[in-house]
Computed example of a mutant assay.
Amino acid sequence: MMKTSSVEFLVFFTILVSSSLLAEAYDPNPLQDFCIAVNDTEAAVFVNGKICKDPKSVTADDLYYAGALNESRQVTNSLGTQITLVYDEVLAGLNTQGVAIARLDFDLNGLNPPHEHPRGSEIFLVLEGTLYAGLINSNPANPNDKNPLFAKVLNAGDIFVFPRGLIHFQYNIGKTKAVAIAAFNSQNPGVVTIGKSIFGSEPSVPPHILAKAFQLDDDKLVEHLQSLTWTGNVN
Score class of each variant (00 low, 15 high):
P30L: 08
S57V: 10
L10K: 12
L91K: 13
L22D: 09
C52W: 08
S78F: 13
K56I: 05
I36W: 00
V45D: 15
E128K: 10
K53A: 11
Q32C: 07
A23M: 04
V99A: 01
P55Q: 14
H115G: 13
D27C: 08
K50M: 11
L108M: 03
V11W: 04
S19F: 08
A100T: 05
S121E: 01
R119W: 06
E71L: 06
V38N: 00
N39G: 00
T59R: 13
S78W: 13
S72L: 05
I83L: 12
L21E: 14
F124Y: 09
L79M: 01
L79I: 15
G98Y: 04
T96Q: 07
H115C: 12
V75M: 06
G67F: 00
L79C: 13
L91M: 15
R119G: 06
C52F: 09
N48Y: 02
D40Q: 01
T14D: 10
E42M: 10
L10Q: 13
S121Y: 05
Y132E: 10
E116H: 03
S72D: 15
V17C: 04
G49D: 06
E24K: 03
R103E: 12
G98L: 05
G67V: 10
S18Q: 05
N39R: 01
F34Q: 03
A68F: 06
Y64H: 15
L111G: 01
T130R: 14
